[in-house]
């Protein structure tokens, strides 16, 4: 099993680094842009916070974007949320199906490893890469704050990244289940699902009648403005996230251990 984990880590390292440097780098640039935009942002902050549902959707009514924390939460929160969700979907959606899609399944499954161990090993590789991705992005954000000489909101930053990691894990497990059910890589489907989930959250924040159901989606507990403003995540959102992770992992094991491998 460790051989599979090592191979997957090595094989996907470059791809993970590209994603992490892209998302983290974008966040870093966003933070640096704060100083050059500080004056204009001050003027815009009031009007942005009074745009009703639109302000709610992007958290601008919760925190002022005139502050570095508010600017970070609004801008980088969106970039990291979307970027990391797409990375998780992209990465996990091909993890199992690529063996059948690339016709390497016969080689892999002729080795003395059960399918359960393959699922576990590849799942571990996904988890490690998600952790590394989150840490690298976090370092970029810390560097951004440090470059501006601003105080780093440590606790909030850790909570923000931890929630993002949980959301990424949730998206990854959904994508992993998609990967287990198909013998072709369904990257488009997985990316589509992550974007639908994101859109659901935006709609939930714009349409008042949907607000009560926000907790179902994983983006409900990663709203950076709420995290930095110390507002609790919607009730049951973490419970739902845990249930989704558990169910999709169980589904992955049940599906993949019973399916006929395509030749």
């Amino acid at each position: 099993m460790s051989a599979i984990i090592r191979r997957e880590l090595k094989l996907n390292l470059k791809s993970m680094l590209i994603w992490a440097f892209t998302v983290g780098g974008l966040g870093f640039i966003c933070i640096l842009m704060y100083t050059s935009m500080e004056g204009e942002v001050m003027e815009m902050a009031d009007s942005f916070s009074q745009m009703g549902a639109f302000s709610d959707a992007f958290g601008m009514s919760t925190l002022s974007i005139a502050t570095i924390t508010g600017f970070f939460a609004t801008e980088v929160g969106t970039v990291h949320g979307l970027g990391s969700a797409m990375f998780a979907a992209f990465f996990a959606s091909s993890m199992l199906s690529k063996e059948e899609d690339g016709h390497t399944g016969e080689f892999l499954f002729s080795l003395p490893v059960s399918r359960s161990k393959v699922i576990t090993a590849k799942g571990c590789a996904i988890l490690v890469h998600l952790i590394l991705f989150t840490v690298i992005c976090g370092l970029f954000y810390v560097m951004g704050f440090a470059a501006l000489g601003e105080e780093i909101p440590g606790k909030e930053m850790i909570r923000f990244l931890a929630c993002m990691f949980l959301m990424n894990t949730e998206i990854a497990t959904i994508s992993y289940l998609i990967s287990a059910t198909s013998s072709k890589t369904r990257m488009g489907l997985a990316l589509g699902v992550s974007l639908i989930i994101y859109t659901y959250d935006i709609m939930g924040r714009v349409i008042p009648s949907m607000k009560d159901y926000l907790f179902i989606g994983p983006f409900s507990y990663v709203n950076a403005s709420e995290i930095f403003a110390h507002i609790d995540a919607p009730k049951y959102s973490f419970l739902i996230a845990s249930m989704v992770i558990l169910l999709t992992i169980s589904g992955t094991f049940i599906t993949y251990t019973r399916k006929d491998l395509a030749s």
């Binding site: 690339g102 016709h103 003395p112 059960s114």
Partner: peptide
């Protein structure tokens, strides 16, 4: 299944591996 595969050497007809390795 797992124990059996320890003592089996299988060569598939397609002989496909991971291209980047």
């Amino acid at each position: 299944h797992e124990n059996i595969l320890r003592d089996v050497g299988y060569m598939p007809s397609e002989a496909l591996f991971y291209p980047a390795m």
